[in-house]
């Protein structure tokens, strides 16, 4: 019997009778992390890492039935041994390991190998079959070190201050926004949009300390943020709200900003290639570390990446899923819903 199947509802564990990150309502859903394309509405029961619990309650509903689990803790679900291991993507993000009759499958969700200083660092897990993303599965994507990235963000803020400008960062409200906050800590007064504040609370509720900030209400006057630092979610790009910010210089933080064309397409004042996904080399490293004999590629550059894996002798197959809609962190802003 195959341990997992790719079903219309999502990735299914056959002997365990549960789904991992399903996109249609099911009975039992194991959730790799709190991003909207992986943690969806309508499951009877959710199982996720402890840190993901407050995120799900905040994003889906306070009333959902959800059970938290620690990293490396073993539990049995219908005879399948299940454990969660750090994926390094955002807080609480996990690679889910399934073991049944000596066969091991790991569903990695989204992951990165760089240590962002907020998420528990990625921990490789050996397995027979590995389910991997490939958002940045092209060799043009090679991230700079986190120290260098943080330095660039902080320098940009200082540069703007010398021109009396307000630094506005656009970044996903769960994960990216908090990284930006950390990177620019102590360079100036920090303001964040309400949707980010809501997720910051989830961070703080599990004991993660974030820099001091103020919540910015765009329905009111926002002139006081002048020359400070503002962080907003992607949904606010091109909105009237963002135009109220005085003397704005705005930067987009996303892995897509690697390519000049993508930066200019968004016509931002600056683009920083900062991502919560693994770059090309780290995707390959993670897969090699898993020692898997078979790799399923779920979203992103699936065709390219699995072709390459096959060429270097790692059996691979692409799988159609509904993760990473548009595979674009900026376009996917709309999955965050009505944030203004």
């Amino acid at each position: 019997m195959r341990l997992i199947q790719f079903r219309p509802e999502g990735i299914y564990c056959v002997p365990g009778k549960f789904f991992i990150d399903p996109w249609l309502p099911v009975d039992i859903a194991l959730i790799t992390h709190g991003h909207a394309d992986h943690a969806r509405w309508g499951m009877k029961k959710y199982l996720c890492h402890h840190f993901t619990v407050p995120i799900l309650r905040s994003r889906i509903s306070p009333d959902i039935q959800v059970q938290g689990i620690s990293y490396d803790e073993n539990i049995k679900v219908n005879d399948v041994q299940v454990s969660f291991h750090p994926a390094g993507h955002i807080i609480g993000s996990a690679q889910i390991r399934l073991e049944y009759k000596g066969r091991i499958v790991v569903i990695s969700g989204d992951y990165k190998l760089q240590n962002d200083g907020l998420s528990t660092p990625f921990d490789p897990v050996k397995c027979h079959e590995y389910v991997s993303e490939s958002t940045f599965g092209l060799p043009i994507y090679q991230w700079k070190s986190v120290e260098r990235q943080n330095e660039e963000l902080a320098n940009w803020v200082v540069h703007n201050q010398s021109y009396h400008k307000t630094s506005v960062f656009v970044g996903y409200s769960l994960g990216k926004a908090q990284r930006i906050m950390k990177a620019v800590e102590d360079t100036g007064p920090l303001y964040v949009h309400y949707s980010i504040h809501k997720l910051n609370q989830a961070y703080e509720s599990v004991g993660i300390k974030l820099p001091k900030y103020e919540v910015l209400d765009f329905r009111e006057d926002v002139k006081h943020v002048n020359q400070g630092i503002v962080i907003v979610p992607p949904a606010l790009v091109d909105s009237n709200a963002i135009r109220k910010i005085p003397n704005m210089a705005y930067a987009i933080c996303s892995g897509w900003m690697t390519v000049r064309g993508a930066r200019r397409w968004r016509s931002a004042d600056a683009g920083f290639a900062i991502s919560d996904h693994a770059d090309w080399n780290d995707l390959l490293t993670a897969i090699k570390l898993s020692e898997a004999e078979k790799v399923y590629v779920t979203h992103g550059q699936t065709a390219v990446f699995s072709k390459y894996l096959n060429e270097i002798g790692i059996a691979s197959e692409e799988v159609k899923t509904e993760f990473g809609e548009e595979d674009d962190e900026i376009v996917s802003a709309k999955v965050e819903g009505n944030v203004v």
Partner: peptide, 28 residues
């Protein structure tokens, strides 16, 4: 970079500029 021709072309068509593609592919 030791990457095959087809992967180079995929990268190129994703970047849209040869000089930029090469620069992005090269190691630090």
């Amino acid at each position: 970079t030791k990457i095959p021709e087809w992967l180079f072309l995929e990268s190129y068509s994703s970047v849209g500029d040869l000089g930029e593609t090469i620069s992005l592919l090269l190691p630090d």
